[in-house]
């Protein structure tokens, strides 16, 4: 089982990218579980027609611990097992602690043992702003962290912060950095900026995605590009990225 966490500045395209990777992995015959770690609970929407699904914290709110594993998941396109951590009432509670609770519930109820996914993808909200949002990279959760960035200054800044957090947690047995993913926004010199960022953290840019209207068209349909437009150039880019991410994640880990 390969467990990968995806971080990056808010709005950089994590959920879109992760969902397309999930579709690409599933199309290659892998059993995939995608876990949205965002209070908005919309990470997996494009895997099930754009509809919202009940989150783990919705279940906790309604029934405390009195619910079954099957109620926490929803099967999406291509058989991807979709999970949304969810969050507290907007403006109240603690979103980070909510992520911890949601991931603990998933583990307590045996999600990994029952569904036995080949790949688990954690789609994590924005930056590593607190202990809760570092949960997906803690021991027992993700093995590798991938960071999405564009060439825009604030995005690179956020990516560097996340990479620094991963580096600082090395002594704790947390996930290691798998690499960066460049999601192009047509900013000046963005390939070079992403490459420099990777060099600064002794890592690499494992893949790059062009800006494409196809992404928005698929989103309108409530589907991933890989699923809605499998023959498009953008779908080919996602498939190539999926291969590159897998290769980077397996690098130096014989067990993967």
């Amino acid at each position: 089982m390969l467990k990968l966490a995806f971080y990056g500045k808010g709005g950089i395209g994590k959920s879109t990218t992760v969902s397309n990777l999930a579709s690409a992995f599933a199309a290659n015959g892998l059993k995939v579980m995608q876990i949205g770690c965002d209070p908005k609970a919309d990470s997996t929407a494009s895997l099930h027609g754009g509809a919202r699904m009940r989150s783990i914290l919705d279940l906790v709110r309604e029934r405390n611990n009195d619910f079954m594993l099957g109620e926490m998941v929803r099967e999406g396109d291509g058989g991807v097992i979709c999970v949304e951590a969810g969050g507290p009432t907007p403006g109240l509670g603690c979103a980070g602690r909510g992520i911890i609770t949601a991931l603990e519930k998933l583990q307590e109820k045996g999600a990994y043992e029952v569904y036995k996914p080949d790949v688990v993808l954690y789609d994590v909200l924005g930056d590593v702003v607190c202990g809760g949002f570092s949960m997906p990279m803690r021991k027992g959760y993700a093995d590798r962290v991938f960071i999405l960035t564009s060439g825009e200054t604030m995005s690179v800044y956020a990516a560097a912060n996340i990479a620094m957090a991963v580096k600082n947690f090395r002594g704790r047995g947390y996930a290691s950095l798998g690499g960066f993913v460049l999601n192009r926004r047509n900013a000046p010199d963005e390939d070079a900026k992403a490459a420099k960022l990777a060099v600064d953290f002794e890592s690499s840019v494992v893949g790059a995605l062009d800006w494409s209207e196809t992404v928005q068209q698929a989103e309108q349909l409530g589907k991933t590009v890989v699923h809605a437009f499998p023959d498009s150039p953008m779908a080919a880019q996602y498939r190539a990225l999926a291969d590159a991410v897998l290769a980077a994640a397996r690098k130096g880990d014989a067990s993967c």
Binding site: G131, G132, M135, K139, R172
Partner: peptide, 15 residues
């Protein structure tokens, strides 16, 4: 509530 990761802190202390 702060989500302190004690097993990870223990690993650092041990190292």
């Amino acid at each position: 509530l702060a989500g302190t990761d004690f097993p990870a802190i223990a690993a650092e202390v041990e190292s």
